[in-house]
């Protein structure tokens, strides 16, 4: 048994006690089995061999049997998922082409409808224009007739006014002068005044 003693001066002293105590030696023996190692860094034979063996066995099992099986399952599932995706894509494309077809048909129908509406509108427009033109010409004829009547009526009224004024003028002149003026001269003068005078 060995003991270290530190003196007051800090000097290390080694004290050896040789005791023939059976228990003591046994304790030292078990202690030295774990404690008196060559080196904490050096690899230990049994750990190296068992570690290598278990790793290699694990590697071989994984490489030969477990990993291919797992990977096959994973690949199968991924292919399944991919196929599902592709199927979904195909379905969607089919649906899209259906929609496109429907829309094309719809566009055809719409174009046809628009054509018909256009044609109808053109007919209606033509008819309306013809009717408007007819009505306009009728209105113009009526207005021309009315204008002519008005002008005739106006001329007649003027003639009557001129006649009356001439009569009044001739009578006035006869009263003032005592002589009856020439009717044609008076009528001419009145006509002149009426045409040049301010309205």
């Amino acid at each position: 048994m060995r003991v270290l003693v530190t003196t007051q001066q800090g000097q290390l002293l080694e004290v050896r006690v040789n005791a023939d105590d059976a228990a003591g030696t046994e304790a030292t023996a078990t202690e030295s089995e774990t404690a008196s190692a060559p080196n904490p860094i050096a690899p230990e034979g049994k750990e190296l061999i068992w570690g290598a063996g278990s790793f290699l066995v694990f590697l071989v099992i994984m490489r030969v049997y477990l990993f291919p099986k797992l990977k096959k399952g994973m690949d199968a599932r991924y292919t399944g998922i991919r196929e599902d995706f592709e199927q979904a894509d195909a379905t969607r494309q089919a649906a899209q082409s259906d929609v496109a077809k429907y829309e094309a048909a719809l566009a055809d129908v719409r174009a046809e409808a628009a054509g018909r509406i256009d044609a109808a509108r053109q007919t209606v427009d033509a008819e309306r224009n013809a009717k408007i033109a007819e009505a306009n010409s009728k209105i113009a004829a009526k207005r021309a007739a009315a204008d002519a009547e008005l002008a005739a009526a106006r001329a007649k009224v003027r003639d009557q006014v001129a006649e009356a004024v001439s009569t009044v003028t001739a009578r006035t002149t006869q009263l003032a002068v005592g002589k009856s003026p020439d009717g044609s001269v008076v009528r001419e003068a009145v006509q002149q005044v009426m045409q040049s005078g301010a309205r």
Binding site: L13, V15, V17
Partner: peptide
């Protein structure tokens, strides 16, 4: 006496290990 208590100073190698 048989136990033989021996007091010894550290050898040079042990001192080197300490430092």
């Amino acid at each position: 006496a048989r136990a033989g208590i021996r007091v010894a100073e550290l050898t040079a190698a042990e001192e080197k290990a300490n430092s």
